[in-house]
Each structure stands twice: as C-alpha cells, then as structure tokens.
Amino acid sequence: MSDEPRPAPFNADELTKADSDAISAFLKARVQDLLDRHPAGSAEARAARALQESAGTLVDQLNLLFHDEDPETLKARMDAWNAVVFTVWLGWKGTEGYDVKRWRRVQHTDIEDAVEGARRLLKSREQLAEKKRAERAHP
C-alpha cells in the first residue's frame, strides 16, 4: 500500500474547472452520506462538518487558480490540486465513484517543467551509474 497517490500522467496546465467540480461533487456526496447516517451533534456529524469546511476551503482555493497559465499560477494550481487529491485519496480511494485515473498527484506545472524534470532525473541516474562504474573499477 502506497502512502501517497500515484503521479498523474498530466500536468497542472491540463487541469480544468471540470476536474475541480467532479472531485468537489464526490466530496460533497461523501459528506452528505455521513450526515445522513449520523444524528446532528454526534461526533461523526461534527467530523463530517469539519471535513466539509476544510475540503470546501481547499476546493475554493483551487477554483481561484483557473484564470491564467502564468508559471506562479500553475504552481499554485498544482499545489492546491494535490491538497484536494490527498484529502479524497486518504479516505476514499478504491470506493465507488472514486476516479482513479484522474484524481492523481500532479508533479509538473506544464510540459516544459516535465521535460526539465526528466532531464534532471536522467542526469542524476547517469551520475549514479558513473559512480558505481568507478567503484567497480577501483575497489
């Protein structure tokens, strides 16, 4: 079992308001289910209300970040998306309605950031391989 959602095969600039709306609707339905099953004032209903408020705040913050594609906005969108995804993933991964293909952790703001990340990864792996070759050559 992993301790975080799988990385997304898409970037922050590919997220849309429709993605936010879908994950928000999923959260609202889960909270409503909790509220329907527990009496008002119970610990469970209070926890559901707290989740509703905190998750709603996260979604609201995400929704403010669809107005442009500036690098700073894309970084903030990525961070906001990941916060919402972690909230959903922790409680409901594998349940009915959970979108395993879309609700994933975004690692890059756009394609250029993804390419640069791949370059950094390749360079670090090349350096590691070179170090191992040197260690084998001179034990």
Rank of each mutant, 00 (worst) to 15 (best):
D3R: 09
E4F: 11
A8L: 02
A8F: 01
F10W: 12
F10N: 07
E14Y: 02
L15F: 02
L15Y: 03
T16H: 00
T16D: 11
K17R: 15
D19N: 15
S20Q: 06
D21G: 00
I23N: 02
L27K: 00
L27N: 11
R30N: 12
V31S: 00
V31N: 02
Q32S: 11
L35M: 01
L35F: 05
D36M: 10
H38M: 01
P39N: 04
P39H: 00
G41H: 10
S42K: 05
E44V: 06
R46N: 11
R46T: 06
A48V: 11
A48C: 12
R49M: 07
A50T: 12
L51H: 05
Q52T: 04
Q52M: 12
E53N: 08
E53T: 07
G56T: 12
L58M: 10
D60A: 12
L62D: 06
N63Y: 01
N63S: 04
H67N: 07
D70K: 14
P71E: 09
E72A: 13
E72T: 14
E72H: 02
T73W: 02
L74T: 07
A76M: 09
M78Q: 15
A80S: 05
W81T: 05
A83Y: 06
V84P: 01
V84S: 03
V85S: 06
V85T: 14
F86W: 15
F86L: 06
T87G: 08
V88R: 03
V88M: 03
V88H: 07
W89K: 08
G91D: 08
G91L: 15
G91Y: 05
G91V: 08
K93E: 15
K93N: 08
G94C: 14
T95N: 03
E96K: 09
D99Y: 05
V100Y: 05
K101D: 08
R104Q: 14
R105L: 14
V106A: 03
T109C: 13
T109A: 13
A114Q: 03
A114C: 01
V115Y: 13
G117M: 08
K123E: 15
S124F: 02
E126F: 11
E126H: 08
Q127C: 04
K131W: 09
K132E: 10
R133L: 15
A134T: 01
A134V: 06
R136D: 14
A137F: 03
